[in-house]
Simulated assay, not measured.
Amino acid sequence: MIYILPLLSVFAGYVISIFLKPSSSTGFQLLLSFSGAYLLSVTVFELLPEVYAGDSSEVGIFIMLGLLLQIILEFVSKGVEHGHMHHNDDTGSFPFLLLLSLSLHALLEGFPLNNSGHLLHGVVIHKIPVAAILSVFLIRSKISKARIFLFLTIFGLMTPIGSWLQENLKFLNQYSVYISAMVIGIFLHVSTTILFESAKNHTFNASKLAIVVLGILLAYFI
């Protein structure tokens, strides 16, 4: 499931993009908020205690490096990881830099999935709205359907590849705490940005508050 679900979630996002307008759909925005709350909660409840359970004094440095890395990646991706897309439409060219940025993000988030089923659920829920926003951009960019499929397939495969590398390249085990710490920094930036940017004027309404609380409770009890 670690290898299949992240890929399926990307194509689920593509299907959603065909039937909904993510930028104006209330249901889509609530799904985005739920994904941010769930991902943030799993990060705080599970990943943070794990990386701080050891004796390494450098964990905090790598968390901040991960956060900084995500900020740098968003210079290229323009915020698609947290549900925003600000690229110009109708370019007609294949967005290689965007694919590179998203692929690095997706590759890193795959590393800690072998150790947490809850995190897998969070990543999958997070990928669905992200893939929907991304699909809308790709369709509006007027690139061919074959290239859209290629882009989404590569993007969808990167997280399973990250999980596979962590599982099969044993030398990575000695760096697993540091990689997980960087992923925490990435998740902290993405999830908090989702929570504060997915509502108009950065305010919480009753529906969003309820869905955020639901995401936190599910992450804690499941």
Rank of each mutant, 00 (worst) to 15 (best):
Pro160Gln: 06
Ser57Ile: 11
Ile184Lys: 05
Ile125Arg: 07
Ser191Tyr: 05
Ile179Leu: 12
Ser144Lys: 09
Leu20Asn: 05
Leu169Val: 14
Gly185Thr: 02
Leu108His: 10
His121Tyr: 15
Ala206Val: 05
Ser198Ile: 04
Ala12Leu: 15
Ser77Ala: 09
Leu69Thr: 12
Leu31Ile: 14
Phe171Asn: 06
Pro22Ser: 15
Val44Asn: 00
Leu107Ala: 04
Leu65Ser: 10
Asn88Ala: 11
Thr203Gln: 13
Leu152Tyr: 05
His87Leu: 12
Leu120Met: 12
Val123Glu: 03
Ile194Asp: 03
Tyr175Ala: 15
Pro6Asn: 10
Ser24Gln: 15
Glu109Met: 12
Lys200Trp: 00
Ser24Thr: 15
Gly54Gln: 13
Ser9Lys: 13
Leu169Ala: 06
Ile148His: 00
Asn168Val: 04
Leu214Tyr: 10
Gly54Phe: 11
Ile161Trp: 09
Ile222Trp: 13
Ala131Leu: 01
Phe62Ala: 00
Leu5His: 02
Phe96Glu: 08
Val190Glu: 02
Arg147Gly: 01
Val76Leu: 10
Ile133Gln: 09
Ala106His: 00
Pro129Phe: 04
Lys21Tyr: 11
Val59Trp: 03
Lys21Ser: 14
Pro22Met: 14
Phe11Asp: 03
Glu46Gln: 14
Val136Phe: 01
Gly66Cys: 08
His202Trp: 05
Ile148Arg: 09
Ile63Cys: 01
Ser57Arg: 14
Ile61Ala: 07
Ile133Ala: 08
Val51Gly: 08
Asp55Pro: 03
Phe75Lys: 14
Glu50Arg: 15
Phe149Pro: 00
Glu46Asp: 14
Ile161Val: 15
Phe187Asn: 15
Leu8Ser: 05
Val136Ala: 04
Thr192Val: 07
Phe171Gln: 03
Phe221Asp: 08
Leu98Ala: 08
Thr192Ala: 06
Gly117Glu: 12
Leu99Trp: 14
Ile154Tyr: 04
Phe221Gln: 08
Lys200Met: 09
Leu30Ile: 08
His82Trp: 14
Tyr178Cys: 08
Ile222Asn: 07
Val42His: 03
Phe28Tyr: 13
Ile16Asn: 03
Ile18His: 09
Val51His: 02
Ile63Pro: 08
Phe137His: 09
Leu32Tyr: 06
Ile63Ala: 05
His202Thr: 08
Ile186Trp: 02
Ser207Gln: 13
Phe204Gly: 07
Pro95Tyr: 01
Leu113Ala: 10
Glu167Val: 11
Phe137Ile: 00
His118Leu: 14
Val123Lys: 02
Phe149Gly: 05
Ile161Lys: 11
Lys127Asp: 00
Leu99Met: 15
Glu197Leu: 12
Ser25Met: 12
Leu217Lys: 01
His86Arg: 12
Gly185Phe: 04
Tyr3Pro: 07
His86Ser: 11
Trp164Gly: 06
Glu74Asp: 15
Ser56Pro: 02
Pro6Arg: 10
Val124Pro: 00
Leu73Asp: 00
Ser191Ala: 15
Ala37Ile: 03
Val183Cys: 13
Ile72Lys: 12
Leu214Asp: 05
Leu150Pro: 01
Ile61Trp: 04
Gly79Thr: 09
Ser198Lys: 02
Ser33Ala: 15
Lys21Asp: 15
Leu217Asn: 02
Ile71Pro: 01
Gly36Ile: 07
Ile61Phe: 08
Val80Ile: 13
